[in-house]
């Protein structure tokens, strides 16, 4: 932490950047939240370490059109979201100074984060410099990322339906999942837009939450980097990552392995057409399998 902090203060002082997006301590010991630092004095509260789970890339949206550069501290998996936002032309690379921060897996008050148990590796997709204070080992994922999806796939359609109805019935529509999601970055979300017809439609039946989540999952399909933030922030502990991972697994199987936010290619499997693409009938065939 010390080196990141020191470097950030340096860059602030020499005018390279005008602000820093990082973390600060909250009320509890384990409760660190994203914060903005605009000068060396404010940087006193900057922290990095075990509880810096939050993915800061989405906050870049706010500063893209502002004067000067913004420093953002990103963990390896956070850089995928950053890259995806670059692909979608939502942020400009030259507006940000990215410090890649080494990470050996994050925690909260209950222990290791769920998203970290399926760690996608320690490579930085985008960075200006890497500061590996933590001397993070090349840790391997603790579990197969798709294990939960495979369990769901084994269920009958009715069991699966019941499972999701059960899970989603707990949703209180606090919108935390959407608000934290770096893919859910629309200037005006359809669910906040009375004219969209979607917003008014959702609340009329008990299918509301399901509708919300299904629509959201479709909107982020192909763009979701599986950063795991939605499940992390959900106060109702709904396993939203399973929904997104199902899409990822299907896309991998139908169009070849793909990780959103990796590489230079802006096209996702769902926004590119090749002659080898699966025909739409595949949905029917799989449904019958």
């Amino acid at each position: 932490m010390a080196r990141i902090k020191q470097r950030a203060i340096e860059l602030l002082s020499d005018g390279t950047v005008m602000r820093v997006i990082g973390w600060e301590k909250g009320e509890g010991n384990c409760d660190w939240s994203p914060a903005l630092f605009e000068n060396a004095a404010e940087m006193e509260n900057f922290v990095y370490g075990d509880y810096a789970g939050a993915n800061l890339s989405k906050y870049c949206l706010k500063f893209n059109r502002q004067e000067g550069k913004t420093l953002v501290v990103l963990k390896p998996c956070d850089t995928l979201s950053f890259r995806q936002l670059l692909h979608e032309h939502r942020i400009d690379r030259e507006k940000f100074y990215v410090i890649g921060a080494g990470c050996k897996g994050m925690k909260d008050e209950k222990g290791g984060l769920l998203k970290c148990s399926a760690c996608k590796g320690k490579e930085f997709e985008v960075y200006d410099e890497i500061i590996d204070d933590e001397e993070a080992q090349k840790t391997t994922a603790l579990m197969d990322r798709m294990a939960g999806v495979i369990e769901l796939e084994k269920m009958t359609a009715q069991e699966r339906f019941d499972f999701w109805r059960g899970e989603l019935s707990r949703c209180i529509r606090c919108n935390a999942c959407r608000n934290v999601c770096p893919a859910c970055s629309c200037i005006k979300c359809v669910f906040d837009n009375p004219a969209s017809g979607v917003q008014s439609k959702a609340p009329v039946t008990d299918f509301e939450e399901n509708m919300f989540h299904i629509i959201r999952a479709y909107h982020v399909a192909g763009r979701c980097t599986d950063c795991g933030e939605c499940s992390r922030v959900c106060p109702q502990n709904i396993p939203l990552h399973l929904l997104n991972r199902k899409f990822i697994k299907d896309m991998n199987e139908l169009y070849g392995d793909y990780q959103a936010g990796v590489g230079e290619n802006e096209r996702t499997p769902l926004t590119s057409y090749t002659k080898e693409d699966a025909e739409p009938g595949i949905v029917y065939e799989r449904g019958n399998a």
């Binding site: 979608e88 032309h89 939502r90 200037i187 005006k188 802006e266 926004t271 590119s272 057409y273």
Partner: peptide
């Protein structure tokens, strides 16, 4: 234009190249 993110997804799927920014 009030709703557009400029995200280029539409441009990528347009088979006729009708969309620019």
């Amino acid at each position: 234009e009030l709703l557009c993110n400029g995200c280029s997804q539409c441009e990528k799927v347009c088979p006729y190249g009708a969309i620019t920014y």
